[in-house]
Amino acid sequence: MSQHNIDPLVCPLCRQENACVNLSSQDVEKTCWCNDPSIQFPEELLSQIPDELRRKACVCRSCVLAFQKRHSPE
């Protein structure tokens, strides 16, 4: 995938919209969902992002929550 095809508003894991307020042209006065203190972005999740997309597109909330659910202590 070339850098020209990278959409910063598409999750690099599931290829769905990531709802990133920080990278979009939305109202910058709003806080992005990723600033929620209950949301964690562990390295184990981030390491799943393909190299060519790393630091170029945000993981979506659904992928983060699914990862947290899979890896939370029962």
Rank of each mutant, 00 (worst) to 15 (best):
Asp7Met: 09
Gln40Pro: 05
Arg61Trp: 04
Asn35Phe: 01
Lys30Trp: 00
Pro12Trp: 06
Pro37Arg: 13
Ala66Pro: 09
His71Lys: 12
Arg15Val: 14
Cys63Leu: 09
Cys34Ser: 15
Ala66Ser: 12
Leu53Gln: 06
Leu65Thr: 11
Leu46Phe: 14
Cys34Gly: 11
Ala66Leu: 13
Lys30Thr: 00
Asn22Ser: 08
Gln40Tyr: 02
Asn22Gly: 10
Leu53Cys: 05
Glu52His: 02
Thr31Tyr: 00
Cys63Trp: 11
Pro73His: 15
Arg61Cys: 12
His4Leu: 04
Arg54Gly: 01
Leu53Phe: 04
Glu52Leu: 00
Ser62Trp: 15
Arg54Ser: 09
Gln26Thr: 06
Ser24Pro: 15
Ser25Lys: 11
Ser25Gly: 07
Ile49Asn: 01
Phe67Trp: 09
Ser24Leu: 15
Arg61Gly: 04
Cys60Asp: 01
Val28Tyr: 15
Glu52Asn: 02
Phe41Ile: 08
Pro73Asp: 05
Asn22Arg: 12
Pro50Asp: 02
Cys32Glu: 10
Val59Glu: 02
Ser62Asp: 13
Val64His: 00
Ser47Ile: 15
Phe67Met: 08
Ser25Trp: 06
Val59Asn: 03
Val64Trp: 01
Val64Met: 08
Ile49Tyr: 03
Glu43Thr: 14
Ile6Ser: 04
Glu29Arg: 10
Pro73Phe: 07
Leu46Val: 05
Gln40Leu: 13
Gln48Met: 11
Ala66Trp: 15
Met1Cys: 07
Leu45Lys: 05
Ile39Leu: 03
Gln26Glu: 10
Gln68Lys: 04
Glu74Asp: 12
His71Gly: 13
Gln68Glu: 06
Cys20Met: 14
Ile49Met: 07
Phe41Ser: 05
Lys56Asn: 10
Leu13Gly: 00
Lys56Phe: 05
Pro37Lys: 05
Asp51Gly: 03
Cys58Trp: 09
